[in-house]
């Protein structure tokens, strides 16, 4: 499960800044609360409670898990200010493809946030794939993690941050 809403700072647009979004997770059993303000809800909840959520006083973003595909939401992207992609474990790399697809194929303009098992050494790849905010795994130092954003200064391939491969720029 991703970090909950107690985390108040985030790396966004290359700096550490306060975060106003609340991440909503649904426990396996029992009730859950939808907090006031801007919320990020699970895809399933968003699909099932569309009507209720449309009345929510605040912005509503969604988060998808690594088995939930961007194609499922492709036609509804304009309603979304933010999509968070969960990394249940850092070795699960599906989210990198999802972010690129959201940006390059579906031209999603909102925020794409990496949540879950997110640490310094993934940030460079994530940024290149179109993520622009990063909720680090609990206990990780954000100051140090900023170094991870631009750890390699040149890139060979085309990606979201640099749509021209190096061979077209040489």
């Amino acid at each position: 499960m991703p970090n909950d809403s107690t985390q108040h700072c985030i790396i966004k647009d290359g700096i550490i800044q306060p975060d106003h979004w609340h991440l909503v997770t649904i426990p396996e059993t029992g009730n859950y609360d939808i907090p006031p303000g801007d919320i990020i809800v699970p895809l399933k909840l968003w699909q099932e409670q569309a009507d209720t959520l449309s009345q929510h006083p605040g912005k509503v973003g969604i988060w998808i898990n690594s088995h939930e595909e961007p194609e499922w939401i492709a036609d509804k992207l304009r309603q979304l200010p933010l999509i968070a992609i969960n990394f249940p474990i850092f070795t699960d790399g599906r989210g990198y493809s999802y972010a690129r697809l959201l940006r390059e194929r579906y031209h999603f303009q909102g925020e794409i946030r990496a949540i879950g098992d997110v640490t310094q050494d993934q940030l460079f790849y994530m940024r290149r794939c179109g993520f622009d905010s990063f909720a680090l795994k609990e206990g990780k130092d954000m100051e140090t993690a900023l170094n991870g954003l631009a750890t390699i200064s040149q890139s060979y391939q085309a990606a979201v941050d640099q749509p021209q491969p190096l061979f077209r720029r040489r």
Partner: peptide
Amino acid sequence: RQWSTFHPEFAYLP
């Protein structure tokens, strides 16, 4: 070699 070096999408393959 160049294309695959630090390819951002394919660093965490199955």
